[in-house]
Nucleic acid binder design. Structure first.
Lengths: 317, 317
DNA sequence: TAAAAATACTCCATAGGTATTTTAT
DNA sequence: ATAAAATACCTATGGAGTATTTTTA
């Protein structure tokens, strides 16, 4: 089969008008060059070079092949450089998926500095429930996910990125705003709003309760809402209180319209995991992004003071 | 060095999503396919295919390479077909040179049927003296020439194409029009016009005279003209008579304004030769043209009756 | 005669094969 | 347990070398 090496040698012969000079140029002996040219001439079934003794000149067919060779070899070089560049260069589109909290609050905050540093990058964030995000990572539609722990799929690799501790969220004028910690027993009597079944937030709550030996049914559930925002509105309208991630209600906590307090005897910590396909090789862009956000998550995204009274003092700047 | 074969195998793996299926498709064993892919991955320094067990899918880099491979291999195929077609196909431009008579009268008549048969052909005729035509054939500017015999250049191959017999050309009212043959002795007394020095026509005349033991100076030369047309005008204006190729004055012979007669004791035959570079491979187009005009010259181009009285009778159609 | 391509031959690097192991479903 | 890729190892083709002959300026 004709290959690029033959054409490369041929090209050199045309350029040097000599077999032996071309041979020197590509570190081949003159007889080897002869055999390459012979191969091509046999392959195409026609003479490509006229050996005039003094110099070697291409025939019409040789001229055609020379022109084509130039283009073909130039294109080969283009491929080489394109792939070489691709190695290091952070460029192109990165599709990330996130469940509600990561997709709605964490990722939007993380990608800001990244896209500022790498202007040729487009990050696409897709929000969905943990399971559908994981499915899309499996299928390859998404290269990366940021979700809660998955059901241990063999093809999924997860790496803990960030810890989140849910809090009891109450209106600013709720009687408990002055209390430092509420007991679990007290909570069970309060009207309570939950996220819909299947949501990560509800799942985390169920897990936490179970860890303390309780069940969801023991709560006085007065409403079930389809989104964090809806729950939030429910709280503000005094329908009930709920357990949410402070990250999701940061605005209201800052504004003072909602307050976050801890519950004694209930571990509400949960983690979000960087989620990748175990076998698929991440693109350099993806690798760079992972590196970037891991570093970014070393310094806390959300100031620890956010949930203290200190945090609610008017800012001086 | 990366070659097209690697890319071809790689492409098949991507398409079949399998090393072994790809191997079958290109008649290679699965381990051989493995080694090809390994070569490419080493060459580019990155993983190109993710082996997911169930199927094999390209990485981002693999996708890039696949796209490029398609183009590169398509271009390779284009080259193959282009050169394959070039073999048989009569197409393109053919540069031919001719000295005065062939370039001005013979070739224009010959190429007519050829360009009619091969519509994608352009014939370019360059007229010049024999020596410059031969030089251009040597340099490759012209692929073919039609000229008188050359000075036996080693690199020139000549092949007799057509014979021409020069005649004494006289005005229609010249006293000799009724005579069948003029003797050489009579000719020497007549006012005579010659072509300029260096012209093929003059050279032929000198040669013919020499063959009969005469010299040019014995003629009563009254004028020297730079072209056949000029000589012709000179004859019509009774400046003198001349020896020319009847081919060049065909129109006047037909119209009866000039007459052509033979000269006893003077062999005025000369030949025109197809002239090629001995080492250079002629293009298929050139080969085809040569074949064509050789066949065309078997039937006389100029009717033998042209120089008889019969010829001058009014045509009935 | 000198210089360059073609030819003859020799050799070894490697493409490709078979057999087997490893890995993943 | 099965199917597919990786690995190990072997073989043989042909790419590339040296030496020589042929060709041509």
């Amino acid at each position: 089969m004709m290959d690029l090496w033959h054409l490369h040698v041929f090209r050199k012969v045309v350029e040097f008008k000599s077999f032996s000079k071309a041979g020197k140029a590509v570190n081949l002996s003159q007889p080897t060059v002869s055999s390459h040219i012979k191969y091509l001439e046999d392959h195409f079934g026609c003479r490509l070079l006229d050996r005039l003794g003094k110099e070697v000149l291409p025939t019409k067919a040789g001229e055609m092949l020379y022109g084509y060779s130039q283009k073909l070899l130039a294109f080969r070089d283009e491929i080489e450089t394109a792939l070489a560049n691709f190695q290091g260069i952070v460029k192109g589109r990165l599709a990330i998926g996130g469940s509600t909290i990561p997709g709605g609050y964490i990722l939007p905050r993380l990608i800001g500095p990244f896209v500022r540093d790498y202007s040729e990058v487009t990050i696409s964030i897709r929000i969905g429930d943990t399971q559908s995000i994981i499915n899309e990572v499996l299928s390859g539609e998404l290269e990366l996910g940021l979700v809660g722990a998955s059901t241990e799929n063999k093809h999924i690799h997860q790496d803990m990125l960030i810890e989140d501790e849910m809090k009891l969220i109450i209106p600013y004028d709720h009687p408990w705003v002055t209390i430092k910690q509420v007991g679990l027993a007290q909570l069970l009597k309060e009207p309570f709003i939950v996220r819909e079944k299947g949501s990560g937030t509800l799942q985390s709550l169920v897990n936490s309760l179970a860890a303390s030996g309780h069940k969801l049914e023991e709560l006085r559930i007065v409403a079930e809402m389809g989104s964090t925002t809806a729950v939030c509105q429910g709280i503000k309208n005094r329908i009930g209180i709920s357990i949410l991630s402070p990250i999701a209600v940061e605005e209201d906590l800052k504004a003072g319209t909602l307050r976050a307090i801890s519950i004694k005897g209930l571990n509400l910590k949960r983690s979000f995991y960087l989620t990748q396909h175990r076998q698929r090789t991440p693109s350099p862009l993806c690798q760079m992004f992972i590196q970037f956000i891991k570093k970014a998550c070393l310094k806390p995204l959300f100031p620890p003071t956010m949930f203290t009274d200190e945090f609610h003092k008017p800012t001086s700047t």
